[in-house]
Every structure is written in structure tokens, then in C-alpha cells.
Design a protein around this nucleic acid. Structure first.
Lengths: 233, 233
DNA sequence: AAGTGGTCTAGACCACGCG
DNA sequence: GCGTGGTCTAGACCACTTA
């Protein structure tokens, strides 16, 4: 039997995928170690490593030193979502982007916000509400709090033409953050802004970003009904 | 000035992040090439490559041959979601998992389903509806169609004790697929199953998987209000 | 044409974590 | 202890893309 040689890590990866798919290596099975596979595939161990590491990153394999590499018993599907600037998202759909500032004020936030952002409860933050439009129809509502202790320049920005969404990307670096996706019912206020009936199911994205130990901004985006966030699996 | 040396790709990556964060390398800027950075950092080029490639994967850098490496002007936030088996999700919250089969039948699907799954319109598919419970209260409704041409073994499985969600993971390999997230209003039927009021906002996950050119399964999961999918950024 | 990132190699040492 | 994956190195060649 003439085994073809594998010249690059992608072909090695494909071959491994084939073996898993064909159940030659079934879920839970231990597969040969890198050194042996390198010999079998006729390539360097680092090439095998690159291929297997990549598969481990995508959840197909479980790797542990000494214990070896196993086919994931219950592959966790990893979906990578690209959260772009809303303007780009709209324009990529071939629509005209529009933006409307609704409210901008420096006020003390509700405790739910100061608590999450770990600011003093009495501390005033910059509150910005805006509407993003696609072909002149409402696309999403943005409700944002900005920590002006961390981003004082925001106080000088009107956000009348440029959305906080975009301004912050350029001016407010962050070290980490988290994001959550959920479904919420439209309040009367949101319903009016989005021009939908009250109680409609809206897709919500909540984001909170940090610069070291200080919160930068907390935002909730509410999308009009029908919005779907998609990605390949 | 004494530049410390960087011994591994993670420390190189951190240093690059620092420079971007401090605006030494601002968004849009071209940064030095790998060879120069390797000299500056006192490590091998492949180590720099590993660090920069990883940053490019996470959207922080844009890399092009010949054109060089630039700091992403508008960093696209990449959120990686782990879509686990529902039982695990429930158990990780420290709750008791429960499962209830509602319906199982082999019927011809609506055209919206046969269209998406690219099966003949007259072709009968296996339709499974089930309820996932967390501490005996409804957690999510699963509405699934299975292509029994591709997974004939499914016809022999009752899905009374084991959810299709889990069974398919073990028995139905797939090569690719896509996933979508959205918000929908609860129909009367769904409302009753989930024990919520009609019209509630439900978080929906739609998944369609393929084995080569044939669809394997199409599923919609509807989660009770309050459900949030979270991840680090 | 030439510069840049992409990748491969062969070898080496290390760190983790089973047994 | 010791086998495994994780990483680093120095060098090489290649592929893409821009100028």
C-alpha cells in the first residue's frame, strides 16, 4: 500500500479529519503521538503539531501532555462570531447606513450599571443613546454608558455625526471584556424608536469592556425583529 | 536602555499588545517586519511569527505578504462561542438535567425545511420535538429534522431517553454547517411547552449541518426567557 | 523584481501530568 | 520517572503581492 506523503500541515489536518470522519479514529479514541504520525506522514513533527494543535483549538481533539491526543468525545461546536462596527454590517448588506443621536448626557447611572462597571454609585458617567439605520429604516438601538474617568476625551465628543460605537473603537483601547447575547421584549420606548410594536422580540447584544481594572464602556444593542447573527460552523 | 529579551511567543505577543495599546503602534500603522522584530526581541523569527499570526487570527493585526503587518484600523471583535450539548450546559450551572420527548414522527417536512436541507420535497424526514429541563423546569425546546437518508440508524432510535441533540453528536459526523442566533416570539405552542406567556421573547439557535453535500440535520433550539449566551472578548 | 509573511525541517530542551 | 505535547532555534525555500 502506497501512502501518499503529506507536504503541509493543512493536508495533514485533512487526513486527520478524514480518519475521524471515517471512524478509523472514533470519538474518545487515543490517536498516535506526534512523533509516530510524523514518520507515517513523512513530515516533520512540528508540521504534525501545527495540524493537531489547530484541530484542538477548534474542539475536534483533546490534547494533554503525557496522556496523549484523543478525538473529542463530545465535540464542542465553536462558533466564531465577528462583531463588526454596525456601519460596516449595514453596508455589507448593500444598504445605506444612517445614524441618529437620540440622547447624550452626563448623569449618575442606575446601580445596575455602576455595579457592573465598578464605578462609585455617585459617579456621573456619559450616557449615549442612538439609533442606527439601514436604508433609512431603524436597524438597531444603542444604549451606552462611557466611563469618562478612563476616556475623558469622550466628554468633548458630541456623537452627533459619529456613533459612539465607532468613536470608541478608535479612541478607547481595551484589554479585555465580555459579551452576551439574549432575547428581550421591546419596551414602549424601544418599540417607538425601532418602529415596531411593543413586546416584539428583540435580539440583544450586551458588551462590557475593560482597560486593566477599570471599565471603559458598557453597551446594549437592540436589533429590529428579524435580525440574525450567523456564522459558519 | 536595556531591552529585556523575550523568551517565548506569549511574551512577544504581550509586548506587541502593549505597544498597540500605548499607541506606539497606532491603528493603521505598519509595524516592523518579522525579521527585524526577531532581532529586536532577541528570539527566532518563527517565535515572532507565532505571536503575530495569533494576533492576526484574533483580528488585532492585518497581515499581507510583501505589504507587511499593520495594526487593524477597525478591529473586528471576534467572539468564540462554545455550543455545548444542552445537558452539559445545564449541569455546569449546577442544576439537574431532565429530558422529555414530545413528538417523534417520520413525515414530509414543510418546504422551508426541505428547501434548506436540499432534500426532495416529497421525501419524508424524521421529525423530533423535545423539551430540555433544568431542575424540572423547562429550559429549552428542541425542534429537529433528521435526514434519514444520511443517518438511517436514527430510524431505530426512539429518542425517549437520549436526546437527538446528544445522539447525533455520537452517530452523525458532519463536515461543515452553519449556525444562527436570533430572537423570536413564543407561539402558543412553544409558550405552553416552556410554561411562559405567549409572545415572550425567546432566544433561538438555528443550526444546519452537512456531510459533504448532503444535509444531516436541521434544528431550532428555543430557550426560556432570561437565557443569555456569554463569552469573553 | 524584490520584500514580506507562510511554512517546513531537524534538532533540542522543557513542562506537565499520568502511573 | 518518563512519555507526551509545547515551544524555541537556525536555516531554508516558497508564494503572494506590491511597486
Amino acid at each position: 500500500m502506497n501512502m501518499p506523503t503529506f507536504r503541509n500541515w493543512r493536508s495533514v489536518q485533512e487526513e486527520v479529519r478524514r480518519r475521524i470522519h471515517s471512524r478509523k479514529w472514533a470519538p474518545g479514541d487515543l490517536i498516535p503521538n506526534e512523533a509516530d504520525l510524523a514518520i507515517e506522514f513523512g513530515c516533520a513533527r512540528s508540521t504534525v503539531n501545527r495540524a493537531l494543535r489547530s484541530l484542538a483549538d477548534s474542539g475536534v481533539l483533546d490534547r494533554k501532555r503525557k496522556a496523549g491526543t484523543r478525538v473529542a468525545a463530545e465535540p464542542v461546536a465553536k462558533a466564531t462570531l465577528d462583531i463588526a462596527v454596525i456601519r460596516h454590517e449595514v453596508e455589507e448588506h448593500g444598504a445605506k447606513y444612517g445614524y441618529l443621536l437620540i440622547k447624550r448626557s452626563q448623569t449618575t447611572p442606575p446601580v445596575s450599571v455602576s455595579g457592573a462597571m465598578k464605578t462609585r454609585a455617585s459617579e456621573a458617567l456619559l450616557h449615549v443613546q442612538a439609533l442606527h439605520l439601514s436604508d433609512d429604516t431603524p436597524y438597531a438601538v444603542e444604549d451606552r454608558w462611557i466611563n469618562t474617568n478612563v476616556v475623558p476625551e469622550a466628554k468633548l465628543e458630541s456623537f452627533e455625526k459619529l456613533s459612539a460605537n465607532e468613536w470608541l473603537m478608535k479612541h478607547a483601547p481595551y484589554t479585555h471584556g465580555d459579551i452576551g447575547f439574549s432575547a428581550v421584549q421591546a419596551t414602549a420606548e424601544h418599540a417607538e424608536m425601532l418602529n415596531v410594536s411593543q413586546g416584539s422580540a428583540l435580539f440583544a447584544i450586551d458588551r462590557l469592556t475593560w482597560d486593566s481594572s477599570a471599565s471603559v464602556t458598557m453597551v446594549r444593542l437592540l436589533f429590529t425583529p428579524g435580525y440574525q447573527l450567523r456564522t459558519a460552523l
